[in-house]
Design a protein around this nucleic acid. Sequence first.
RNA 1: GGGCCCGUAGCUCAAUUGGAUAGAGCAACAGCCUUCUAAGCUGUAGGUUACGCGUUCGAUUCGCGUCGGGCCUACCA
Length: 543
Amino acid sequence: MKQYLKAQLLGTLKSLGVPENIVPSFEKPRIAAHGDLTTNVAMVAAKQIRTNPRQLAQKILEGLKLDGTLIDKAEIAGPGFINFHFTDKYYQAQLEVIIRGGKQFGKADIGKRLKTQVEFVSANPTGPLTVGHGRGAVYGDTIARLLEWTGYDVTREYYFNNAGRQMRILGDSVRLRYLELLGEKIEFPEDYYQGEYIKDIAQYLKDQHGNGLQNEPAEGIFKRQAEQEIFDDIKNTLERIGVKHDVFFNENTLYETGQVKEVIEELRKKDLAYDQDGAVWFKATAFGGEKDKVIVKATGEPTYRLPDIAYHIDKFKRGFDFIIDVLGADHVATYPDVLAGLQALGYDSSKVKVPIHQFVTIIQEGEVVKMSTRKANFITLDELIDEAGSDVVRYFFLMRGIGSHLNFDLKLAKEQSEENPVYYLQYAHARIASIIRLAESKGVDVNKSYDLSLLNQTEEISLMKLLSQFPDMVESCAVTYEPHRLAEYLHDIAGSYHKFYHEHRVVGEDLNLTAARIALCLATKTVLANGFAILGINAPEKM
RNA sequence: GGGCCCGUAGCUCAAUUGGAUAGAGCAACAGCCUUCUAAGCUGUAGGUUACGCGUUCGAUUCGCGUCGGGCCUACCA
């Protein structure tokens, strides 16, 4: 439809002598009375050729010859908008498209099978995933689903590091708890991992080995056991909310293969790395950075920047042409250095997108809970799923833009889980399923031919209009990485359907009308189910 | 001190990326079940979009400033 109108407008504009650099763009008006599609081209053009926008719009309108079976009317409104009203017939035809499309309806191929990687979660195995991780996990997974839906070839990746200081402390935390279980008096340092899960791991080791591990070093079996259990736990939690990574990439491999060393050498060759105070520095200032950054400490240990750069180079070398790193707000400061490093070594850093989600604040009994894995006063993602269920958790994280700080009132979530907005959507789907079951039990053939022109009631038309927007919605959410708009849209669909249901009876005396309305129900069910699939929530047949 | 994000109804958040009359859900109040799922529907009330200037046909959206909150600001990740 847009293409059609655009072509018509371009022709008319040309005949009016409007410069060719002016290309009409369209929007869906917020208000129904303003039609189905609107263009501000008259206002844009009027500015350039310095004329009155409304007069120009009038001329354009007079020059347009529109297909009456598609466009009901076109009119000028406000400061110079041209509004197009589509015919009912057009929307009725869209319904057919939806039903024929079925599970495929809304899919697009704008991605052209581009090899794409979405890296998300990437928490080191030092403790259970928190609610904060949950937001990144659900968001990253949904971005991956959106990209798959729009034709990208997507790999989900998890990057982790099981070496380093934090893991050493983890191992030693377990060792101390183990010794404690054997009855030794221990000092448990404040900056060690305080969580109960450490004691559980220690208990397991005691059950398995008795007191045979008394003289084992922290970095041996203690660390290994902790890592394995925690990682199993993390994977299990992710699975519970429908998140599954294709690749788990261990930072260590970057050292083992010499890729980290290579980065330093390359940077030195290009004169972008130098030694000072016993450390190796990267000339971040050459790429707009405020000051140069250390990449290898005086101790000989690299900072996170160096392996991160090597890691991203590895991504490119594995053939990814489009890379998305989902990060939490605490990492804002880190990625510019990585991008600069990539740029320095001749990689196109514009292929790397870094959506950053703000923190989740947990409110419990009216008070803010400060999250810290170390101090263990966190709410785990697992606990949240126990309380609310996967669908609620996913929807809750997806219904809001990632740019805003999310307040999660635990008390509210528990008490009102029945009132949760996700049920509003799922209820619409279940309701449709129920009606279709009823129709079938009454012998109505739901696949029978139908006369869609019978669907001319206000509620039917507005529902059809919404349904037809699904493909556009999917595409724009994929392009902007904003799944919350899809959540919002599905909410509108559900609302529109509930209104229709309330005003009109589907299964009735008039068999032709019944068949047409069943078709509308099927189309609605299709769009809801497809939307749910992208958001990763269930489409229940019954509630 | 500097950088990034944010400030919209009592609360939690939207607003088609600069569009026309700023919308939902909770909470409050008043209605709707002898007919397909009331986890629903209808209505009432709730706003100087933190504040001030600017850019233009037009600003919640862009720019500058002020105030307030979060995150970062390591030779931690």
